[in-house]
């Protein structure tokens, strides 16, 4: 039986046709860029290297380790691929993985594949890489700083994908944002820890055995492009969210509010960095989740930065 490592592969039917079309439009533009940039980066090696490494990510998603209650943690891999190959190459690798998962194994739909590529490929690659590089610039490229940055980058990459998925479902009228956002972010805050641990382990292994691979990843093209792509996609999601045309169905918040106790389902999300993933004094669950996610991200970011800085100072003091 084939498993899916994350609950992010959207099947056909769950997004409205217009949302799906917008996803394809964005994905085609970005993948075309990725093809051009990696061609420049790798030359003739582009096809064999990207192809074999895409098979690697697919196979690496099978490497798991058990956590409590019969569940296990897997790797998604977008952030790791970006850390070793750069975000443009990682986008191409993840696109190939998602294409085969959808075309051959029906894991993720065909009409909605544009968004699957954006959520699990582009956003994880660029989001993870941006955080990883930014933290290393602040804390230095020492071993501990690099590992902390790798954990934070991988965790953020999963969260970004989950938030984007929740927004797409909400805009399509499949699930109200007030429910999808808290549920998706709470579950993926936990899944992101697994992603972070495995990514950190892989980076630690490479830092010991083959540091030049990581240095090549640091120098890969896409550092400046990363911010532009992330900002562009963020704007696209926000526009989609607030455009009345894209959302013919009302969110149903008033209807939900009438039904006592319903919102508790979203609020009582089991695990999160902040208790219940809600902050007191703020009523709306969407705003609350946004605040909680931002706080959680800042926390992960801050701890990673602190660990990296302290390690750098120790290394300096020890001579």
């Amino acid at each position: 039986m084939y498993f899916s490592p994350l609950a992010l592969h959207i099947p056909d039917g769950f997004l409205s046709p217009w949302v799906a079309a917008l996803g394809w439009l964005l994905a085609i533009g970005i993948v075309a860029q990725a093809l051009k940039r990696t061609r420049r980066q790798l030359g003739e090696r582009q096809v064999p290297m990207m192809g074999v490494l895409a098979a690697f990510i697919f196979a690496a998603q099978a490497i798991n380790f058990p956590v409590a209650a019969g569940t296990s943690w897997h790797l998604m891999g977008g952030a790791l691929a970006a850390m070793v190959m750069g975000p443009w190459a990682a986008t191409l690798i993840m696109t190939a993985v998602i294409a085969v998962q959808g075309l051959l194994f029906q894991d993720g739909g065909l009409l909605v594949m544009g968004w699957n590529i954006l959520n699990m490929g582009v956003l994880t690659a660029f989001g993870g890489y941006a955080v990883y590089r930014f933290l290393m610039r602040l804390a230095g490229a020492g071993r501990t700083a690099r590992l902390a940055a790798a954990f934070a980058g991988a965790w953020v990459s999963v969260m970004v994908g989950a938030i984007a998925t929740a927004i797409e479902l909400a805009v399509s009228g499949t699930s109200p944002l007030a429910l999808a956002l808290p549920a998706m972010t709470a579950v993926h805050a936990l899944i992101g820890i697994g992603e972070g641990l495995i990514t950190m382990g892989a980076v630690a292994f490479l830092a010991t055995s083959r540091p030049e691979v990581l240095q090549a990843g640091d120098a890969a093209p896409g550092r400046r492009g990363a911010n532009a792509v992330l900002a562009g996609l963020g704007v696209a999601l926000l526009v989609a969210l607030f455009s009345p045309l894209a959302s013919p169905h009302p969110d149903g918040l008033e209807f939900v509010a009438e039904q006592q106790g319903f919102l508790e389902l979203g609020r009582a999300a089991p695990i999160g960095l902040l208790p219940d993933y809600t902050v007191p004094f703020i009523g709306d669950p969407v705003v609350t989740t946004m605040v909680a996610v931002a706080a959680g991200t800042l926390l992960v970011f801050g701890v990673a930065l602190l660990v990296g800085r302290v390690a750098a100072r120790r290394a300096g003091a020890g001579g």
């Binding site: 690697f56 790797l75 070793v84 382990g201 980076v203 630690a204 083959r210």
Partner: peptide, 10 residues
């Protein structure tokens, strides 16, 4: 698990 992934990558 991460070491295994890193090894597979190399």
């Amino acid at each position: 698990a991460g070491s295994m992934v890193g090894n597979l990558f190399l």
